[in-house]
Amino acid sequence: MNQEPLLVVEGVSKAFGGVLALSAVDLKVYPGDILGIIGPNGSGKTTLVNSITGFIQVDRGKILFKGRDITNMKPHKIADMGLTRTFQVMRPYYSLPAFKNLIVPLFSPRARRTGGWRGGGKMGSRDTVAVDILEEIGFERDSYIPYKTASALPTGYLKRLELARCLALRPEIIICDEVLSGLSMSEMASMVPLMEKLQMEGITLVMVEHRLRELFRIANKVVVLNFGCKIAEGSSDEVMESKEVKEAYFGSEEEVFSYV
């Protein structure tokens, strides 16, 4: 790949009190990638997502998106540039019906500029575009589900709603914070092709995941974090063979033997 990276993270560090949540993490995301970020619990994955999208301020380092410095910019400005994210803990507008949840992003300056996903907002009403997006993402159009209040929707649909909210902005990158976790096997089975479809649409995906098997099937590059440090990077096979990764997940050999 000799094209320009879309998103560059350079030496980003973040400490919460005395705990170093991220220490000098580097990352490059190229257009069309599906980049996976994995790591054990507490390894700083979500902190990294929050840092990139401006939800927390980083202490050191630099984040570039399309060559522009977005370090510590306001979250809404970063989203306005086309770098969107989902939340690990779903954040729908619980009192609104599912399709009305999408009116909010469709009403944003970016969506009004670009017309929202596939530019549909320039032609139809926002309600129609919202239902179009929901259908695309797996809400059955002719059922009552798109019109149900978000608080009454099961987890699987809420995860999709998170993605739909990103799509409504017509993003260039979506950072998915654990969209696969908490789903049933069948829900996951339909989610994976959906992610591949989004990639075909030209959207770059960064997936923070615990579900390694599904992730390795679609990711073309994987980054492993542990205790806030990047410990491995490469294709899924390379990463799985790496000694550091095995140690991070299973403990080192000496440790294992010390328990026996």
């Binding site: 989203a79 939340f87 954040r91 949840n101």
Partner: peptide, 24 residues
């Protein structure tokens, strides 16, 4: 109206409104 839905969004979940590229 749509503006009112953004208000409701701010009330229900201001983080998600921020993530939608709207200045809360």
């Amino acid at each position: 109206e749509d503006v009112g839905l953004v208000f409701t969004g701010v009330k229900d979940n201001d983080q998600a409104v921020k993530a939608s590229g709207i200045n809360i």
